[in-house]
């Protein structure tokens, strides 16, 4: 049986909360033995998505989940959800260089490239939930 465990939840309201999300993600990534490069990718993706949640979603929360599959593989999943305006044109939002807030426009598309799994659920007026999964290369230490 695949089991999913929520390890941490972080509220995202203030700018400093983006830093809190990064620290929480780094802590979990280190604890399950991700390499330095993988940790950096995880934390960078978290930083991009936390900023999106704060700026575009007008705040929300980040959930850090650990998923253990039958075959012993562990996936660290970051779920960012907000109750903001949602995204009207998903394809456009995922285009490199598209920015609605004066950034480099790499928040969503960049996070998708860094992650092993990417999922986006949104509708105008119904908020946005983005999740990115990173598989641990070796079975997690116990």
């Amino acid at each position: 049986m695949t089991s999913i465990l929520t390890v941490q939840q972080v509220r995202i309201n203030e700018e400093i909360d983006i830093v809190h999300v990064r620290q929480a993600v780094r802590e979990v990534a280190v604890s399950i033995g991700f390499s330095l490069v993988e940790q950096t990718k995880l934390v960078t993706a978290a930083s991009e998505l936390a900023r999106n949640t704060r700026v575009h979603g007008h705040g929300g929360e980040a959930r850090i989940e650990l998923e253990k599959a039958d075959d012993g593989t562990t996936t660290l999943r970051l779920v960012f959800s907000d109750k903001g305006p949602g995204i009207a044109d998903v394809d456009l939002a995922l285009t490199d260089g598209y920015s609605s807030a004066g950034g480099l426009g790499l928040g969503l598309s960049g996070a998708r490239r860094l992650a092993d799994e990417f999922d986006l659920r949104t509708a105008p007026g119904e908020g946005t939930t983005v999740s990115v999964g990173f598989r641990a290369r070796k079975p997690a230490r116990r």
Partner: peptide
């Protein structure tokens, strides 16, 4: 740092 450089490139920057 190497890991930062790799991540930036993967990010598309």
């Amino acid at each position: 740092r190497p890991e930062v450089a790799i991540t930036l490139v993967e990010l598309g920057l």
